[in-house]
């Protein structure tokens, strides 16, 4: 028994290939990034070390970096305040319908999530287009023509239009997770509460929501972290514009890297980006664990 389960050669061949690929495409680039982040390399010529200069410039003299973080926070807050309550409500309603219709609705609401972001992003660019988009056509048709604007290029609307698109795309995920949480709740508690004369609102507020707490917490954590990791939708709709008002950190580093060719500087942003993501995850998980023990 022991010999089979501690066969070194077998273990090596089971772990090494996958682990090697993982290190090659995830860990090694991170270390390479740390190194290049300390240089002023622009893709050609000699590499000069500038050590912490890029990092201090980003943190203390780069307003775009801070705009990116602020936008991520705004997205996170709006997602939590708007997308998640709505998703939870609809998960609850769908779970109530029952039968074939329940399955149908569950399937329909998730459709945007199975389509490539490229399609949905370009679709929204068209949908919000100032010249032929349906949104502006609609506003005109219902007599609100004065509200028409170039949603994704207007400084005042762009970030909110973008956040709306991101929420639209992610709605199905949030809802599906709440839905499966609701489906997993113990039925006998509900029945008992019903027998005790709890009305529907009481049932939802005092029984369902408290029982769902772990699912809600996990779902909100995922939402917060993914707000920081947004990239494709931004790249394909506003690309950070107009004037960096819709910039997000991943898109910013991509622009700095591939449009401005500032390899050193962009790598430094990359490093800070990884640090932020890992810190956020660790801190959230830590406080959640404490939360779970207390409750």
């Amino acid at each position: 028994m022991h010999r089979v389960l501690s066969n070194k050669r077998a273990i090596f061949w089971m772990v090494f290939p996958g682990f090697a690929v993982f290190c090659f495409a995830v860990f090694i680039p991170l270390f390479y990034s740390v190194f290049l982040g300390m240089t002023d390399w622009r893709g050609y010529g000699e590499i000069h070390m500038v050590w912490a200069q890029n990092f201090s410039k980003i943190l203390f003299h780069d307003p775009v970096f801070w705009i990116s973080l602020k936008n991520a926070l705004l997205l996170a807050v709006l997602t939590m305040l708007i997308q998640h309550p709505v998703a939870l409500l609809f998960a609850y309603l769908i779970a109530k319908v029952g039968g074939k219709r329940e399955k149908l609705f569950r399937t329909l609401f998730f459709v945007p999530c199975v389509i490539s972001t490229v399609v949905t992003s370009r679709m929204w660019v068209a949908f919000l287009s100032p010249t032929y988009g349906l949104v502006n056509h609609f506003l005109k048709a219902v007599g609100l023509g004065f509200l028409q604007t170039d949603w994704l290029s207007n400084q005042r609307t762009a970030i909110y239009a973008l956040i709306f698109v991101i929420m639209w795309q992610g709605f199905g995920w949030a809802m599906l997770i709440y839905y499966s949480g609701i489906k997993g709740l113990p039925k006998d508690i509900m029945e008992a509460a019903k027998v005790d004369g709890a009305n529907r609102f009481n049932l939802l507020w005092h029984i369902t929501l408290p029982l769902l707490r772990p699912v809600i917490v996990v779902n909100l954590t995922v939402a917060l972290i993914s707000s920081f990791k947004q990239m494709e939708t931004i790249f394909l709709t506003t690309n950070g514009g107009p004037g960096n008002t819709t910039q997000f950190i991943a898109n910013y580093l991509y622009t700095e890297a591939f449009s401005a060719q500032k390899y050193g500087y962009a790598n430094a942003i990359s490093v800070l980006f990884v640090v932020i993501c890992i810190l956020a995850t660790v801190i959230l998980n830590h406080s959640l664990k404490r939360d779970a023990i207390e409750s």
């Binding site: 993982f22 495409a25 680039p29 290049l36 580093l253 990884v274 993501c277 890992i278 995850t281």
Partner: peptide
């Protein structure tokens, strides 16, 4: 090693785009 692989879940893809492109 398991811990190292699990950390990978937290690493954003976009942070590896530039270094991986160069490599």
């Amino acid at each position: 090693l398991l811990a190292l692989v699990t950390i990978g879940i937290m690493v954003p893809i976009h942070a590896t785009l530039l270094p991986n492109f160069l490599i």
